[in-house]
Design a binder for these strands. Sequence first.
DNA 1: TTAACCATTATCAGTATATCATAATTCAAA
DNA 2: TTTGAATTATGATATACTGATAATGGTTAA
Lengths: 246, 246
Amino acid sequence: MTGLNRFIDIIRLFDETQGQWTIPEMAERLGAPTSTIYRNARELSKAGFLESAPSSRYRLGPAFVEFNRRFQLTDPLMRTGSKFLTSLISHVPAPSVVALSRLYDNQVMCTITQQSPNIKFSTSYQKGHPMPLLKGATSKVILASLKPKRLNELLDQQFEDCKTDATKKQFLIELKEINRRGYCVTRGEVDQGLIGLAAPIVSEKHNIFASLSIISDANLLLHEDEPQILPLLVSTAKIISNNLAE
Amino acid sequence: MTGLNRFIDIIRLFDETQGQWTIPEMAERLGAPTSTIYRNARELSKAGFLESAPSSRYRLGPAFVEFNRRFQLTDPLMRTGSKFLTSLISHVPAPSVVALSRLYDNQVMCTITQQSPNIKFSTSYQKGHPMPLLKGATSKVILASLKPKRLNELLDQQFEDCKTDATKKQFLIELKEINRRGYCVTRGEVDQGLIGLAAPIVSEKHNIFASLSIISDANLLLHEDEPQILPLLVSTAKIISNNLAE
DNA sequence: TTAACCATTATCAGTATATCATAATTCAAA
DNA sequence: TTTGAATTATGATATACTGATAATGGTTAA
């Protein structure tokens, strides 16, 4: 492993499954000698991306919090989009989570959320949690807004394992329909019992393909509420897109 | 520049002052040839730490949000401390911000905050914002809890410019007094018109030197409120310390 | 105190890799 | 198209990374 990757490979070991690693553990997992990992871990520690934990373990360091702030302050989607979340959520007639998400590698990731004070459910749409590309309104409206070329590259990766491309064609039809409507509603595709409503946020100029979505309890946010919410959701997403454009 | 630093130097260019950089701008600032910066920026982009912006500029990428989440999920202080913030803030008789902060290089940085719904003031204690080491209750209780050796190293760096070490001695006396009391209250040291109350969170075993603090409007959180708040603040910080220890 | 043990750092020759000037390519706009 | 700028590729050189091993440091138990 070489270049930046030898550092990325190390920090990507740390997640909720295993938040602490010894040097020999990392070395074994990465198939590298301990002396090399010691050296690289030391560099990461010096920069605050790792730090020493008890029992000669290491954990992630607070530098990520600093750079997360820098991202929030400099990213155009964060700067223009975040201020719309509070008012949007106040207009939803059920306790909900509002999320701004975006394409991130081969996944979709939420970069900021806002929630009603009295949330009873828990959703996997959390800030910084990569989510599946093909499931859920949040992801689908993003895919639907991509240029054909980029979309095909992504879908070919996702569908590479299935022999027939019937499912892919089916999926493309669904995306076309989403594009026509300008929004997408899904139920239980990602989290059981939850409903997702999403509208696309696009700025080709800024290379931003994102979505604004509302996640709620499917028993509390009813089908009859949708005519009230969807226009607001779509127009808010449009406003954010327009603000990005200038 | 070499190793991890050649990447760090690049991403550290991006902040609220200038959130977008072209390759030639980075190259000039860092005193490196453009071809090298192109290569490094490409590696950073591939990993999601940078991404392309309009007019052949670059901006920070969303990978930092993902790693910020990993940090929140794995860091012991976050895992044990964050759940105490909401109840603490509900007991403060004025709109306030509650913050968990920790030593970070030669600074102090807040890693999570919680605030009352009706905040009127704005504070520089924000998640991920490095703050001065010598000013404010949040920082001082951390310094006061350090071992003499570490404290001296830090202070010698901070006071290196002044010829006499009278100020340093004065400062050490102040810290000793803070240690005795177990808390610290400062007014307007960091943000004008604001008051800070802080108690230390220490786990030598975990190598964690942190603080729990309340930031509030100095005109709303009065001196006569302190006898009510401080015991709660100190005991909450102690509970977090103890939970860390096990 | 010493000894033993583990974690971490230092050493150093060998080698792979980053560098950087330049050339080639891509891309967008005119 | 053509032009110009941005980005990528090239290739010789210098250098920084590697990895086996040795040295150091810190902790615990005898």
